[in-house]
């Protein structure tokens, strides 16, 4: 699955995008966050504070209980500041 990071989270992770293949027991966004946080200290730092992390699955807002699969595009980003 494709994982995208934007703005402050992109800087903290040090990546704009990565392709990951988590094990089968990773079924929800919340599972994925837990799994990604173990990848590196940068991932852990970027995703540690739920209040600072918004989630989109296939470009729609999603909650941590949202189911995910190998073909999904999952994005993590801070609260938005446009307009």
């Amino acid at each position: 699955m494709r994982v995208l990071y934007f703005a402050l989270l992109r800087e903290r992770v040090g990546l704009a995008e990565e392709t990951v293949s988590p094990p089968a027991e990773i079924r929800t966004v919340g599972d994925l966050v837990h799994w990604l946080r173990q990848k590196s200290p940068q991932h852990d730092y970027a995703l540690a504070d739920p209040a600072m992390v918004r989630i989109a699955v296939n470009q729609d807002y999603a909650r941590t209980d949202h189911a995910i699969g190998p073909d999904d595009e999952i994005a993590f980003f801070p609260p938005v500041t446009g307009g």
Binding site: L8, A56, P78, V80, G82
Partner: peptide, 18 residues
């Protein structure tokens, strides 16, 4: 302002902040 995925980075005098 609350839904569109935009983020502002301000830069001034050598400093920067989201």
């Amino acid at each position: 302002k609350t839904k569109a995925p935009f983020w502002k980075l301000e830069q001034a005098g050598g400093g920067r902040r989201w």
